[in-house]
Design a protein around this nucleic acid. Structure first.
Lengths: 338, 338
DNA sequence: CCTAAACATGTAATCGCTTCCACAATGGGG
DNA sequence: CCCCATTGTGGAAGCGATTACATGTTTAGG
């Protein structure tokens, strides 16, 4: 429980000097600094974060708000964030709303505001106007990943283009009966993105002079199970069936592949499947997908926040515009059977 | 930026009374409390965590150390933790060592010690003796999930029994050629558990008078891909093949199932697969498994910490002994082909 | 109706650090 | 050789709460 005073005593200097020596702010002679460091070492002293924060107004702590950590995208982004943050010597306070409104309220109503954070990163949460305002009122840097939030720095991929590219890929292979598997309304609230993807899909269809069939606009909850169920239903039905499906997430695409297999259909023979994400399992499933670098987005968000905090040079604009994505061709797509 | 003084002014009372009224500690008349609350409300006042922590010595903040958030078990436990913590009004500071030693060092060397936390929960990290000591030296409650750590409260399942049950299940079905898919050395460091599972497997084999074949002691990294690769190799080899495999995690079991399918083998016809975990995808894959309630373990760890902090009654011992598990029979296991 | 216990509230010390300001020592230019 | 700009250090005022202690008020029992 050694405090700064003990170190000051041990080193034979004032607490002010200890503070300066250890934090690197202000001038201290090399010899004094060494003395102080030795004393601190011996006493096993580490600054009290609370006291330091209170006095300086900076907490070296970033808040991260997520709707869940169970989905690939979120856990992967989170890995990217933790990694980058730890290297900068920052702590991370995690707020997992878990899709529960009441938790959401306490997060935005209280937790975020308690002045413990230097900045906030939100992961594809569609924020309510009053929530945006609450965030803004704190006067701390806020960076969003995924969602499109007015007046807030955002790191995101070009959902519209992504989906339209994926669709064009299928069109290019000769498919004319292409379904789309997006997110349900319910999920749109938290994961605002799918509508842009659906728009991209419809746009690509339009460009190819193909009709958008409402019965092929499928929705699920972004999970493997959800994708499985929906695709299985459609492919098992006695009505006209698509020869390909564009999935708004890789996980749903995996579900689609598994569903097809279970029905005895071959992928890509009977059904081509393309996803969006770049999930680690993509290779195993041979999934053609549009990969986004989720880790990178997390890291990028951190850098952005640190920049806003003045910790970093203002890199000339690494994140204005869209985060890059990459088309990855594998074996889940092919020309439709003649 | 309203401070407690502003509220005091607004309510026409002293700061001491405001503190008491808002925190609930100490006596305050109902009318005064109401006045204070109104004033606080109007000013949009929320206490400064830092100041409060500094003064009281309590931070309402729990540290959670994980090796990764990308694996099902960890993300699920984490969900359980966040959920329970948010309800208790606690913050959670996440330390993700990400398997990188250097991060691990900074976590244990610095971050955890900065007196910002009231308690710590570690997720199946095999702690080095000096790390345990560092944790202990902080004098704050520490609860571990998964690992078996000397002198630290631990929440865990009975790995030995789990694995032996899984194995016995297969033996009971008539299998005599049973492989085991566990974790690699490398992963044992962080996820200390698999050796107990392997012991259970060997024990069950022993009991059934079956030999333990070294060539069927498979190891992977606890991922689907890892399981896939290993099982595929074994089942594709021209040598004698197992009719069943016990997997130390459901994710590896999924890999096993996918591998078998890709080889044209039927599950459970040609290969019975049993997992350990209770992964959400188990149902989709029809995986027979021994389910552990990961969320529950997270929640339980939180309750334990809060108890240790005196926030909760000391429930008569909900966690001494093992966390319960449940055998879930599905369709991935059956008697071997005659 | 009196007194002691219970209650309500204010005063002020304290938590452990950061940082402004003052002051002394050092050193280079005129 | 003197003066002023630097540089290094200490003193002390906060930062925004909590809480022990003191003080003034009720309330209830006798």
């Amino acid at each position: 429980m050694a405090g700064i005073k003990d170190v000051a005593l041990g080193a034979g200097v004032s607490v002010a000097t200890v503070s300066r020596a250890l934090s690197g702010n202000g001038k201290v002679s090399a010899s004094t600094r060494a003395k102080v460091q030795r004393a601190a070492e011996e006493l096993g002293y580490v600054v009290s974060f609370n006291a330091s924060s209170l006095a300086s107004g900076r907490s070296r702590n970033i808040g991260v708000v997520v709707p869940t950590v169970g989905r690939w995208f979120f856990s992967t982004v989170l890995e990217g964030i933790t990694n980058e943050l730890i290297e900068a010597g920052y702590d991370l306070t995690l707020y997992n709303t878990g899709g529960q409104d009441q938790h959401r309220e306490s997060v935005f109503g209280d937790l975020l505001l308690r002045k413990r954070l230097d900045g906030v990163i939100t992961l594809t949460l569609k924020l309510q106007p009053h929530e945006v305002q609450q965030l803004a009122s704190v006067g701390k840097p806020v960076v969003a990943i995924g969602g499109l939030i007015p007046d807030i720095d955002t790191i995101r991929v070009d959902d519209f283009n992504l989906a339209s590219m994926a669709t064009e890929h299928l069109v290019g292979l000769g498919h004319r009966e292409i379904a789309y598997l997006g997110g349900t309304e319910e999920f749109e609230v938290d994961f605002k993105l799918a509508s842009a993807r659906q728009d991209g899909y419809e746009y690509a269809l339009d460009q190819a002079n193909l009709p958008v069939r409402p019965e092929w606009l499928l929705t699920a909850d972004f999970t493997i199970q959800g994708g499985y169920r929906k695709v299985r239903n459609v492919m098992a039905a006695p009505r006209r069936q698509p020869t390909a499906v564009v999935c708004a997430s890789d996980e749903m695409a995996f579900g689609a592949i598994l569903a097809a297999r279970d029905l005895g259909l071959s992928v890509p023979g009977d059904l081509s499947v393309v996803g969006i994400d770049g999930h680690d399992l993509g290779e195993l499933f041979g999934l053609t997908t549009i990969a986004q670098d989720a880790r990178g987005q997390g890291a990028s968000a951190v850098r952005k926040v640190l920049q806003l905090l003045g910790e970093r040079e203002l890199d000339r604009d690494p994140t204005r515009g869209f985060f890059p994505t990459e088309f990855v061709a594998r074996t889940s797509t092919a020309a439709p059977r003649a």
